[in-house]
Amino acid sequence: MSRTLNENTSNELHRTLCDLLVLSEADDCLLCDTGGYVLAREGDGDHDPYQMAALGAGVYGASRELARLLGEREFNVVLHQGTQKSIFICAVHADALLVIVFSQNASAGLVKLYAKPAAVAVRALLEDARRLAMEAEDLAGHPLVLNRAGPLFRAGP
């Protein structure tokens, strides 16, 4: 089965993440799953969201294993602070993550404060999306037709 997002859920996610960016004064915000899939992205960062998701999911997974080593169930957030940019990662549920990038003039405290309710809202949206997918309403009306023009990838320009 595929994870799917329809237009409605996409719009709701968009709204939730935009609100989060405004309130927390962060620059960039990414919703991904623990496998590294990019579910949604808002903000004005110029970094590749696919790279961010792959690495963010890796970092979060590694930190979860570290927690386990220490006998913790999990660390609830991962925070990396740089001089210009910082990154904050928290779980939305067992297999989705919010990755938030903020700069010096925002505060980690503010990001943390608003990430929590945003994560709760996002979780509800994802659960709705999953239920919709189960009810088979989702791929219906979205025919995917395979292109058949030879090999997908080629060496050379």
Binding site: M1, L5, E7, S10, D33, Y37, L39, D138, H142, L144
Partner: peptide, 15 residues
Amino acid sequence: MSFVNFKKKEVQLKI
């Protein structure tokens, strides 16, 4: 677990 975003018209697959 592939991922389809109908709004963005995007499919993601992991190899």
